[in-house]
Write a protein that binds this DNA or RNA. Structure first.
Length: 455
DNA sequence: AGGAGTATAAACACAC
DNA sequence: GGTGTGTTTATACTCC
C-alpha cells in the first residue's frame, strides 16, 4: 500500500511548490492574464550556412521591433473579450492583475517561473539534446537546470517528478547498461522511438511551439492535409532551433494544459514569441503594443479562412506523457491568431503594400535541406486502444515489454515528419510576414505621430 | 460526474 | 551507511 498523504498537505497542493503547470499557481495565472501580448525574441548566432541567410530578415526585424519596445510603444494588452474589455484571470482565486513592471521575458522565462513544459517534455528535450540521445538522470537534471533556472531554486521535489516521469512514462526507456560503460548509479534513459512521435506532439502543444494548438485556428472546412501542419519540435538546443538562429515562438504560458480553454475563449490576440532559453546569445523582444498592431487596424485574418486543420491526431493516446489538445472550433468570442492568421496578415499587407521577393525567406532549398535532416526520424502513432489492449493491469514495464513483443512497428512516418518540418518552415515564413506587417504599421504610426506633432 | 493527463509526495528497494 | 536512482502508489488538480 502506498503512503497516505495528510489531508492538510494535500489541500496545499495547488499553490505549493511546483504545482504551477498543472494546477496553476496564482502567480502563474496572473502572469497568464497579463501575458497575452505579442513579443518576439530571438537569439541569433551567426548563420551556419546558406539556409540561415534567408533568415537574416529576423535580425533586422527584431532589432527594429526591439527599438519600438524601448520607445514607448509597449503597452500591456491583457486578455480581452470580443468587445475589447479585459478579461479577468481565469483562476477564481486570482483577482489581482499582473503588475506591469515585469518584462515579458520575466513573465515567461524568469528564474522564478516554472517553464510551461510538462516534465515529459523537459525530459524529452534533454534527451534529444544529447548527442547520443541518451542521458542518465543526473544529466537530465543538469539539462533542465541549465535551461530552466527556475528549478535551481525550486523545491527538490521536481527531481522526484522527473524520475517519476521516466519510470511511468512509456515514452522513456532505460538503455540496457553496458557493463563496460560505467556511468555510476542508474541507467541511461532514451526516447522510445515508438513514442517519440507523441512526445513531439506533446511538445508541439506547448506554448513555445509554433504549432501550439492555441496558435492554430481550426478551419471550419474539413481537414485536407492535417499532417502538413506538423512541425518539428523547437526548443533550445534542438538542431532546428540552432539551425535557425534560435527563433522560437511562444504563446502565453500556462496554456500547455489550458490551451483548449484559452482557445475556446478566443484569448489569443497575438502570437508571442519569446526567448526559449535564458542562455540565448542574443535576445530581443517585441512588446505587447506591437501585438496590437497585428490584431487591430487590418485586423486578424478571419478564422474561417481556408485554414489548415489542427495538426494533431486527436485520437492518439496521451498516456502520461503528451499534452492534451483537442481541436477546437473557431471561436467567435474574440481575436485569435493562428498560423493561418499570420499568413493571412502577410497577404493582407502585401495587397496594399509593395511586396518584396524576399518575403519568402524560406526557399525550397532551405526546406529541402531542413527536411533532409529530419527524414531519418521516425515516429509511430500510438492509440489508446492499442495500449489498453496490452493490459492495463500489468506493471508498466511489463506492458512495455508486452507492447514491444506484441507489435511490429508499422510503416515509418517519415512523410509525416517531413511534413512537420515543412510546416515549421512555413510557419517561420509566416512569422516573417508578421514582422513585416509590424514594421510597416509601426512606420506608419511613427509617421502619423510626426504629422500629429506638426499640427 | 467521471475519465484522462499531469504534478506532487512518499515509501521502498536496489545499486554504487 | 549514505546517497542516488528506479518503481510504485496515492492524491489533487484541471480540462474535457
Amino acid at each position: 500500500m502506498g503512503p497516505t498523504m495528510p489531508p492538510s498537505k494535500k489541500a496545499q497542493s495547488p499553490s505549493s511548490g511546483l504545482g504551477v503547470t498543472q494546477g496553476l499557481s496564482p502567480l502563474y495565472r496572473e502572469a497568464e492574464a497579463a501575458d497575452l501580448s505579442l513579443s518576439l525574441s530571438a537569439s541569433f548566432s551567426k548563420a551556419e550556412d546558406e539556409e540561415l541567410t534567408s533568415l537574416s530578415w529576423l535580425h533586422e526585424s527584431t532589432d527594429l521591433l526591439n527599438s519600438f519596445s524601448h520607445s514607448g510603444l509597449r503597452s500591456v494588452s491583457p486578455l480581452q473579450d470580443s468587445d475589447g474589455h479585459p478579461l479577468p484571470p481565469h483562476s477564481p482565486s486570482s483577482s489581482s492583475p499582473e503588475p506591469c513592471d515585469s518584462s515579458p521575458y520575466d513573465l515567461a522565462m524568469g528564474a522564478n517561473r516554472k517553464p510551461p513544459y510538462s516534465f515529459s517534455c523537459l525530459i524529452f528535450m534533454a534527451i534529444e539534446d544529447a548527442p547520443s540521445k541518451r542521458l542518465p538522470v543526473k544529466d537530465i537534471y543538469g539539462w533542465i537546470l541549465e535551461h530552466f533556472p527556475y528549478f535551481a531554486s525550486a523545491p527538490t521535489g521536481w527531481k522526484n517528478s522527473v524520475r517519476h516521469n521516466l519510470s511511468l512514462n512509456k515514452c522513456f526507456k532505460k538503455v540496457d547498461k553496458d557493463r563496460s560503460q560505467s556511468i555510476g548509479k542508474g541507467s541511461l534513459w532514451s526516447i522510445d522511438p515508438e513514442y517519440r512521435h507523441n512526445l513531439i506532439q506533446a511538445l508541439k502543444k506547448t506554448p513555445y511551439h509554433p504549432y501550439s494548438p492555441g496558435l492554430v485556428t481550426p478551419s471550419t472546412s474539413p481537414p485536407t492535409s492535417p499532417q502538413s501542419y506538423h512541425s518539428p519540435p523547437l526548443w533550445p538546443g534542438s538542431p532546428f532551433f540552432r539551425k535557425n538562429g534560435g527563433v522560437l515562438l511562444q504563446v502565453p504560458h500556462g496554456v500547455i494544459q489550458n490551451a483548449a480553454r484559452i482557445r475556446s475563449q478566443g484569448l489569443f490576440p497575438v502570437i508571442r514569441p519569446l526567448p526559449i532559453s535564458p542562455v540565448g546569445s542574443r535576445t530581443t523582444a517585441i512588446r505587447s503594443a506591437l501585438g496590437d498592431y497585428l490584431t487591430r487596424a487590418d485586423g486578424p485574418a478571419p478564422c474561417a479562412s481556408p485554414s489548415p486543420p489542427p495538426s494533431d491526431d486527436l485520437q492518439e493516446d496521451h498516456n502520461y506523457s503528451t499534452a492534451k489538445s483537442p481541436g477546437m472550433p473557431c471561436s467567435s468570442q474574440g481575436p485569435s491568431v493562428s498560423d493561418d492568421d499570420i499568413i493571412a496578415v502577410e497577404v493582407g499587407v502585401h495587397r496594399g503594400v509593395k511586396s518584396e521577393p524576399k518575403d519568402v525567406p524560406l526557399d525550397s532549398a532551405s526546406v529541402s535541406s531542413f527536411l533532409s535532416q529530419h527524414a531519418r526520424r521516425r515516429g509511430l502513432p500510438w492509440t489508446k486502444n492499442r495500449l489498453r489492449a496490452l493490459g492495463d493491469t500489468l506493471p508498466l514495464k511489463k506492458r512495455r515489454s508486452a507492447a514491444a513483443a506484441a507489435e511490429k512497428p508499422p510503416s515509418e512516418s517519415d512523410d509525416e515528419e517531413m511534413k512537420e518540418a515543412a510546416g515549421s518552415l512555413l510557419h517561420l515564413a509566416g512569422v516573417r510576414a508578421c514582422l513585416n506587417n509590424i514594421t510597416n504599421r509601426a512606420a506608419k504610426a511613427a509617421q502619423k505621430e510626426k504629422e500629429a506633432l506638426r499640427n
